[in-house]
Design a protein around this nucleic acid. Structure first.
Lengths: 217, 217
DNA sequence: CAATAGTGCAAACGAATGTTCTGAATACAA
DNA sequence: TTGTATTCAGAACATTCGTTTGCACTATTG
């Protein structure tokens, strides 16, 4: 159980300060910025704790470069810069999602992307996006052209809006998910619409919808 | 006509490099980074051009701090960090928008905020947000709890979705805007609904909706 | 107790980096 | 042309800043 030894208060304070400083100033702090802010009497103490934080995977340090502290997000990726999410395909009524069927597609590269709030990626980690084609999702108040941000995963809690793949129908849909015994109720967001009931093994969850974005103008 | 003297190629190159470097590395370049990337033979030349770029309003420099170059966006604001937009109030059917009626409210401070994609603010400049209460906007596919991002302004082009204030009714609404002679047609996004017609002087445009955000989970 | 790892402190070193000085080449207007 | 502002070059300077070294204190373990 070497997972999480308690983090010393000072180390947590340093980590918090780095994030705050970066949010306020747009650039990471120097060792001495941290020293003064955390009322540490020596830069070597800061250096020592930064070293420990690096070992623990909270940040990167570029050797010999000023302000070379780079915070890492939950995925261990640098969390600066425009937070782009790949739009891996389109989702439409009764259509397979291309990116899922042709799974062998090259690692990435030629996808469209959409910028999202950095906070989203910090909170959920890796994300992808689907562009909605057609008005088939209108019952979920999702229009043609909207983009849904998805956290990939095979599991969902009751009430989550999920990307569901109906195996026998070969159809993808966005619905609210409820597990009821050994069958699944897929409920349109518009409660006046009738839900769909499926046996659990006919439904594959591909991810949870965490945000819907509609660009205008 | 002192508006835009042509920018020397080298200066443009420097500006482009700063942005690119910042996107790639998360921190601004040093003077010497710029020097080498742009194949300039002296740091003083870089310093000179940065000075000129600062005068022209493209960037800020924090004196004596490493990597103290701060790019400015179209509004002259630093363009780093989490791009938060103030949620200045709620919009609901037949209700005034609190933030607009009590105009004397303190400069800001105690508003909620929502993070948006940095690219949005770079493109539109100053923005604010409204939280939608109730289902009165359901005809525009905007649900209770959705947040609309607004670019403030009194003007709109035909087809824009706007925040319209109906003076005599004392009512705020989100509709598509069409100017037809001396009257205004306010068209719900759902084309099956009937439009509202008003005399032009009964409609105040408070801003254009540039994005709708719905958070789930 | 001794041994060891973890943490904190002070001081100094040296590389990285912003700044300034002097001069010259270039462009442009009178 | 002449003069003036702009732009560039080279070098040196001053500060910032990452890094290292040596030592001390504490806590835990055997």
């Amino acid at each position: 159980m070497v997972f999480k030894k308690k983090m010393p208060a000072r180390r947590q304070q340093i980590l918090d300060f780095i994030r705050e400083f970066r949010n306020d100033n747009g650039i990471p702090p120097t060792v001495r910025d941290i020293q003064h802010a955390c009322e540490i009497s020596s830069t070597s103490v800061v250096d020592y704790n930064l070293h420990k934080l690096r070992e623990a995977g909270f940040l990167n340090r570029k050797p010999d470069v000023a302000r070379g502290i780079e915070l890492l997000d939950a995925m261990g990726q640098p969390d600066f810069g425009p937070h782009k999410v790949q739009i891996v395909g389109a989702i439409a009524a009764g259509q397979p999602i291309p990116a899922f069927s042709s799974e062998g597609s090259a690692s990435s590269a030629e996808f469209d992307t959409i910028e999202v709030a950095p906070e989203l990626q910090r909170r959920f980690g890796e994300l992808y996006a689907l562009s909605v084609k057609g008005t088939s999702m209108i019952d979920a108040l999702i229009d043609d052209g909207d983009v849904v941000i998805i956290k990939p995963g095979q599991e969902a809690n009751n009430g989550d809006m999920v990307v569901a793949w109906l195996v026998s129908q070969e159809e993808a849909t966005l619905k609210k998910f409820y597990l009821e015994g050994d069958r699944v109720r897929l409920q349109p967001a518009n409660s006046q619409m009738e839900p769909i009931y499926c046996s659990a093994d006919n439904v594959e969850i591909h991810g949870k919808v965490v945000e819907v974005i509609r660009k205008l103008g």
